[in-house]
Design a protein around this nucleic acid. Structure first.
Lengths: 188, 188
DNA sequence: TTAATCATGTAACACGTTACATGATTGC
DNA sequence: GCAATCATGTAACGTGTTACATGATTAA
């Protein structure tokens, strides 16, 4: 998956490994996180597959950099991936794993758990307005409004997910509060 | 994470590896999937940590089975994990990765993409009523209504997620349809 | 002058997937 | 008799994480 993400970025324009890392860190991290160590490893693989090629650049002022270009085979692979059927979604949610076993903790602990969750599990680092305006800035620079629309869709998803998460936490809290009330009545 | 999931299950009751696999497959797969090969490997680790112990049982009618029990140290570790602060959510969404680069495909292709998504990315294998009634059945058997509440919360999450995903797809489709309309007007 | 950024990696480990191997028991 | 289920694993590979190493340039 990371392979195809890197291919997608190199399809926009040639970059070095460090630049790829910064794009992931600054723009894609809300739906995909990648370490430099992994990126450089994947770049080796991509070159072995013949999907990218590299060229050492003697930069005027800066450090030497190893510029990476997508090849025709790489572009073909990118399109193949985009058009292939999505495999069944494989979920692996640490959040739900922990929720599932929370019966081992007290109700008060768990109310606290759900109160803290929306902050802890926030999708975006900065606030949403910033994300959208960053996206708008890209759009103007690159001047490909149709591509930018799909970038916006991913942000929309993040926003909707955050809202849903908050709603879910509220529901859980109110169900737990109800139990607390009926318990205290029962005790009298 | 899988380690703690297994600990949580063994905390409910002793089981063999195969039974753990069936619980993941039949009840937890909508938020966590695990292969037998991985489960058996993790079981070895858990035993090395001293969090579980095993006992070969000569079963009357069946195959021998290696029953697994949580230890006191294991119970302690389970609680430590439940009470520790949640680490920042690390997202890795193949769905959004693919969405991000869909500018390479035609608008019609993409409308189709979003139309198919809700089915492809369905959270539950069976329908939701079945999931809830399965959960109710467990609840009656185990007779721990307070634990079952948290199981229900995880199902609630899945249901809300599916709704949100559907809504998001609808939004994307309608934005794409708008562009198609304005394009065809512009062409005239 | 000192911290941040630019730039490229290696090594070891942890976690997840795929394929394979084996054999008993149970239900049709 | 045959397929499905019960039961336990190994091996190889792919992917992700953590820690480390190195050194130049740039801005405060």
């Amino acid at each position: 998956m990371l392979k195809h993400g890197i291919l997608g970025l190199l399809n926009y324009s040639a970059m070095n490994g460090y630049q790829i890392m910064t794009v992931f860190r600054d723009s894609l991290s809300f739906f995909w996180q990648a370490q430099t160590s992994q990126i450089y490893r994947e770049l080796q693989m991509l070159e072995e597959h013949g999907w990218i090629s590299s060229k050492r650049m003697e930069k005027e002022n800066k450090h030497d950099s190893n510029m990476l270009f997508i090849t025709e085979a790489g572009r073909k692979e990118l399109l193949r991936w985009l058009k292939e059927d999505n495999p069944k979604n494989i979920v692996r949610s640490p959040l739900l794993m922990k929720t599932f076993f929370r019966g081992e903790c007290s109700i008060d602990d768990n109310i606290d758990f759900f109160k803290k969750l929306p902050q802890q599990q926030a999708v975006f680092n900065s606030n949403k307005d910033d994300i959208y305006s960053l996206n708008n800035a890209y759009t103007k620079n690159i001047n490909e409004p149709l591509k930018a629309l799909y970038w916006k869709f991913t942000i929309d998803f993040g926003v909707m997910y955050e809202k849903m998460l908050f709603q879910w936490c509220q529901n859980c809290i109110s169900e737990l509060e109800k139990i607390k009330e009926s318990d205290s009545k029962g005790d009298k």
